[in-house]
Computed example of a mutant assay.
Amino acid sequence: MIAKLSALVEVSKLKIKSVLNPFSNVPIIDPCSGYMAELTAVNLSWDSVYRYRHMPKEYYDD
């Protein structure tokens, strides 16, 4: 399937999508899942900083 390129259109020309269609929520869910992945990575980083705070300096230089 070939993806269509996005283009700017007037609001009045947009189609009204049903909220009952599971595919109509995909554009909303996709950025949220990316945000959650980034947040998880940051949380893991801070967890390792706190958990291994008593390690020697050479540990952090690596």
Rank of each mutant, 00 (worst) to 15 (best):
M1R: 02
M1L: 15
M1P: 12
I2V: 07
I2S: 10
A3K: 14
A3M: 08
A3L: 12
L5G: 05
L5W: 08
L5C: 06
L5E: 06
L5T: 11
S6T: 07
L8P: 02
L8F: 08
V9L: 09
V9T: 02
V11S: 10
K13N: 13
K13G: 09
K13E: 02
L14G: 01
L14T: 00
K15R: 10
K15P: 13
I16E: 05
I16D: 01
I16N: 09
I16P: 07
I16S: 04
K17M: 14
K17S: 04
K17V: 14
K17H: 09
S18N: 02
S18G: 04
S18Y: 08
V19S: 11
V19Y: 08
V19D: 10
V19M: 12
L20I: 05
L20Y: 03
P22Y: 14
S24Y: 11
S24W: 10
S24H: 00
N25C: 14
N25R: 13
N25A: 15
N25V: 13
V26R: 04
V26S: 03
P27F: 08
I28W: 06
I28T: 04
I28L: 13
I29H: 00
I29V: 12
I29T: 02
I29S: 02
D30W: 13
D30F: 11
P31V: 09
C32G: 09
C32S: 03
C32R: 08
C32T: 00
S33A: 07
S33C: 12
S33T: 15
G34T: 06
G34V: 09
G34L: 10
Y35G: 05
Y35W: 14
Y35A: 12
M36W: 05
M36Q: 12
M36G: 11
M36C: 07
A37F: 13
A37W: 03
A37Q: 06
A37L: 11
E38A: 15
E38W: 03
L39E: 04
L39F: 01
T40N: 03
T40V: 15
A41G: 04
A41R: 00
A41C: 05
V42T: 02
V42D: 00
V42F: 04
V42R: 06
N43I: 15
L44A: 12
L44S: 01
S45R: 11
S45E: 07
S45Q: 10
W46S: 13
W46P: 04
W46K: 12
D47I: 12
D47N: 03
S48W: 06
S48D: 05
S48V: 08
V49P: 02
R51W: 13
Y52R: 02
Y52C: 03
Y52K: 03
Y52T: 02
Y52A: 04
R53T: 04
R53N: 04
H54F: 11
H54G: 11
H54L: 13
M55N: 06
M55L: 14
M55R: 10
P56H: 06
P56W: 03
P56V: 07
K57T: 00
E58H: 06
Y59W: 05
Y59S: 01
Y59Q: 00
Y60E: 01
Y60N: 01
Y60S: 05
D61Y: 10
